[in-house]
Design a protein around this nucleic acid. Structure first.
Lengths: 196, 196
DNA sequence: AATTAAGGTATCGATTCGATACATTTAATT
DNA sequence: AATTAAATGTATCGAATCGATACCTTAATT
């Protein structure tokens, strides 16, 4: 195993190991901080997603796809968040199957206090701006590589999306056929498709 | 929030978000692959740790510290792994409180098949060696920064440990007061202390 | 010898999570 | 236009995670 790694210069084991440890650190910290508010890690992540997505991607199904769980599980998670007053449900005007999930002010305040977690913020503060930028780029590169080679939904922002058109009066999504604001194109979308 | 990020060139939000997504991808994949063998993500991670640690760090308490859980939880995890035949418990010769956890051949075969997960391996294969090295370094840098600034146990390998001495006939740990082999100093230790 | 600390197990309750079934609404097909 | 298929969302069940607590055994300390 080690021999093969050396010959092929495959770093996948090393990258995986480090990522697994970072993942555990984050999850443990999120669990600790979230428990002060009676929230589980997955509930915090769902709320976090809702603070980053656009108005076409704030439904239970979108959360389900983003978090890689089943819709039954997500349904329960959302019920808890709603009961605690961190989000409210809002029926869609046109499609009666859809429910939009809107974060409340309490929810936003919670996220601001907990994300990124203190443990993580401390760590980043000790790094130079240059190092932070390099780490940021490296992580994004890895994420894109994994998503592309496994043909997964990218959940990128509209500004890098195939369906987004720049027009004289702003932006326009050719998929949902609606105009997009400056705010919109910075948020992530479940229908995102990377520009060829 | 965004304004502050720009002024201070703080990438912590971006890094956190990407890391959270990568973490979810890994966990979801590990859950899916592990379930084919009746194993949960945390059980796989415990087994994975035991394949990386040295003979002074293969106890339930060490696993507890590494995974950031409580010893009760870990006790259950280990019971499952033992019942499924992926590890066996071995009492310590000197300290009757201690139990060493030894991975079986079945356990090793399982890890070889599941770690890194296919999703992850696919992603890495699409990257150049140079990119992989950069990502590997970036992740390690981030991990060390977080651990140092939060004064956490490093769980590094002996070759970078304060307690490890190079001697004429090999290596020696001045903490546990025992000689170390070439194999030993490549494994991670719960007592690891970074050289000054 | 008595006390304290450490390693480990057992048990409980709240929560996660996948699987399944179900209801409602929309889209597709005939 | 009527029927069928697909998509969204909820409810329920069982297995498993996880923290908390209590408890036992052994080692270290006083």
């Amino acid at each position: 195993m080690f021999l093969v790694d050396t010959i092929c210069n495959m770093k996948s084991h090393s990258i995986y190991d480090t990522l697994e440890r970072l993942s555990n650190l984050l999850r443990t910290d999120a669990r600790g901080k979230g428990s002060e508010y009676g929230l589980q890690p997955i509930q915090l992540e769902a709320l976090h997603y809702l603070s980053l997505c656009n108005r076409f991607s704030d439904t239970p199904m979108a959360v389900t796809e983003y978090l890689g769980q089943t819709k039954g599980t997500v349904s329960q998670t959302l019920k808890v968040l709603e009961k605690k007053g961190y989000l409210r449900k809002q029926p869609d005007d046109n499609d009666k199957r859809l429910t939009h999930l809107k974060i409340t002010d309490d929810g936003l305040a919670l996220l601001k206090a907990l994300i990124p977690t203190p443990l993580f913020t401390n760590g980043c503060k000790s790094l130079t701006n240059k190092a932070q930028t390099e780490i940021d780029n490296a992580l994004k590169q890895l994420l894109v590589a994994i998503m592309k080679s496994n043909k997964m939904k990218s959940f990128g922002a509209c500004h890098s999306c195939y369906h987004n058109e720049k027009r004289t009066d702003g932006y326009f999504c050719t998929l949902v056929k609606k105009p997009l604001s400056i705010e919109d194109i910075r948020l992530i979308c479940r229908e995102h498709k990377e520009i060829a």
